[in-house]
Amino acid sequence: MILRLLFAVLLALPAFNALANASVDTATLAQALADDEPNSGRFIQRRYLADLDTTLESEGRYEYQRGERMTWRLERPVVETLSISSEGVERDGRPLEGLPAEVSRLILSLLDGDFAALESRFTITLEGTTQSWRATLIPRDEQLRQHLEHAELQGGARITKLGLWLGQGDRQTIELTPDAYE
């Protein structure tokens, strides 16, 4: 079940956008995130499979309504919408089996700037400046580390890149381009 956190981390990333205007430490992070505006943009995700030496690429749009809902709209190569609210996750309007509501609540609380939950499960290292920073998350739980070696976030004014190192050379990256951000 702990593996569901992968997904939580993945989708919680827009929250890190606020880092850009704050000094780079998690203490001020929560405060900065609390001021975060609703945002949306485009994403490209790449899944690299080491044993097949293949990359699966997909893209689409994301929208985040503060404290309510995160929408992840896949457009290519397949069309599919994931919607996360405090009740759980829906795929194309139908509840997704096997993903506990706690995960979706965790995602939303992260988006709301509650970093206590994330820090209890990961060691977080921040480096760089507020204009260009990188965060490394290492799972505290040994069992989780078997499946997720570490996660990396990069950004400036807003988060632009996320990477998950999944072991055996597999990794997942997501690039984010916020809409008309000034």
Binding site: L3, R4, P77, V78, G98
Partner: peptide, 13 residues
């Protein structure tokens, strides 16, 4: 159809 999205961005085991 249900399997497609998961292959592109897995969140399971």
């Amino acid at each position: 159809e249900e399997a497609r999205g998961q292959l592109l961005m897995p969140f399971g085991l």
